[in-house]
């Protein structure tokens, strides 16, 4: 299992896109179209290489006025999955 990057960013060739036809956010990458559901777009737009994972969690917790530990679990799970697929990198 790959480690989580300290300051995650979308890998080269990966971008977040609003799909007007399907009214949904999607993550587009090499031979990949992944629907970004729920809070995923808010997480992904913050993966810009400047914020730490902790800052992303703080911002999401504030945005959704939600329990930080719950948000942290969701963010870490999502980033771990995207890192393994090499859609998010350090």
């Amino acid at each position: 299992m790959a480690d989580l990057p300290e300051r995650p960013r979308l890998a080269p060739g990966v971008r977040l896109h609003f799909d007007k036809t399907r009214s949904a956010w999607v993550l587009l990458g090499p031979e990949r179209v992944i629907e970004a559901e729920g809070p995923a777009p808010e997480i992904l737009r913050r993966c810009d290489g400047s914020r730490t994972t902790g800052q992303i969690v703080d911002e999401l917790a504030a945005l959704y006025t939600a329990d930080r530990s719950v948000i942290e679990g969701d963010v870490n799970d999502m980033l771990a999955d995207l890192v393994a697929k090499r859609l998010v990198v350090a």
Partner: peptide
């Protein structure tokens, strides 16, 4: 190669 190279 997990996290470095996606293998399809």
């Amino acid at each position: 190669y997990a996290g470095r190279l996606a293998i399809d």
